[in-house]
Amino acid sequence: MMKFALIIAMALAVPAAVAAQLNLNLDHLAKNAKESVEITLDSTLLQLAGRFLSSGKADEAKAKELITGLKSIYVRSFEFDRADAFTTGDLEPIRAQLQGPGWNRILRHTAGSRKGRDQDELAEIYVRMEGGKSTGIAIIAAEPRELTIVHILGDIDPEKLASLSGHFGIPKLPKVAK
């Protein structure tokens, strides 16, 4: 009985950050991918990486600034030989988790449609809000032969994320025409 009570108490004490963490199990896609990138950086590794970032280099200084307050970064990116290597059904388990409390979809973009596929292009951005602050972001970007999922947890300043353009070899975003 005591054991059971202890298990219940521990389950209730699971931190919100863990609850916000998505399960990005896409091993079945990784097997078929021509190229795949799987990055998992928890808070310990982020701190360690931060110690090796040089303030003297523009990109590294930017990275150092960006990771302040972050708890984890997960990236899964796949490039396939064939256009039918995955479907939106493969993404459903992840998208279902993003329907959970706290997560809000702030952008959805689809384009094209071919037989057997809902769309050729899919881009979705989800933000997790807690106490008026953004504490997580998830990006799902799918193209016929490419799939990328980015999941970041922690205190995220969207402005800072937007400032990634112009760094890391990413072209600076042109200003939106009004």
Binding site: I39, L41, V150, L161, F168, I170, P174, V176
Partner: peptide, 27 residues
């Protein structure tokens, strides 16, 4: 860890850039 972080940020920035380009006609 540093190399992975830089790659992760490069991919994130690149995806955000592509999404922005698709959804917002740029001037």
């Amino acid at each position: 860890a540093k190399e992975q972080l830089m790659t992760a940020l490069r991919i994130t920035g690149s995806q955000l850039h592509q999404v922005q380009q698709k959804v917002a006609p740029a001037g």
